[in-house]
Simulated assay, not measured.
Amino acid sequence: MGKVTGLVARATKTKPVRVVAHYSARGGPLMASGLSYQAIFAVFAGIWVGFSIIGLVIQQDIGLRNSLIDTIAAAVPGLIDPGDGSGAIDPADLLEAGALNWTGALALAGLLFTALGFLASARDAIRRIFDLAGPSTNFFLLKLKDLALAAAFGAALIVSTALSTGSTVAIGFALDLVGVGSDSLVATILGRTIGLVVVLALDTVVLAALYRILSGIPIPRHRLIGGAFLGAVGLGILKALGNALLGGATSNPLLASFAIIIGLLIFFNLVCQVILISAAWIAVGMADNGIAADPAAAEAARAERERIAELERIAADARRPGVFARLLRRLDPRQDQADRAK
Rank of each mutant, 00 (worst) to 15 (best):
K3N: 14
S24V: 12
S24G: 14
S24R: 15
G27Q: 00
M31E: 15
A32R: 08
G34N: 01
F41C: 10
V43E: 10
F44Y: 13
V49I: 10
I62K: 12
L79N: 01
P91S: 08
D93S: 12
G98S: 13
G98H: 06
N101F: 15
A105R: 03
A107Y: 07
A109N: 09
T114V: 14
A120Q: 10
A120R: 08
S121L: 09
L132Q: 04
T137K: 02
L141Q: 12
A148P: 08
A151V: 12
A151L: 09
F153L: 02
I158M: 08
A170Q: 15
L175C: 09
L175F: 08
L185D: 15
Y211L: 14
I213T: 14
L214T: 05
I219R: 01
H222W: 11
A228C: 00
L230D: 00
G231R: 00
V233Q: 04
G242A: 00
G247S: 05
P253T: 08
P253F: 03
I261L: 11
G263P: 04
F267T: 06
L270M: 02
I275R: 04
A283M: 09
G290Q: 04
A293N: 03
A296Y: 13
I308V: 15
R313C: 07
A315C: 06
R319Y: 02
V323S: 13
F324A: 12
L327C: 02
L331T: 14
D332Q: 04
D332N: 07
P333S: 01
A338W: 14
R340S: 00
A341N: 04
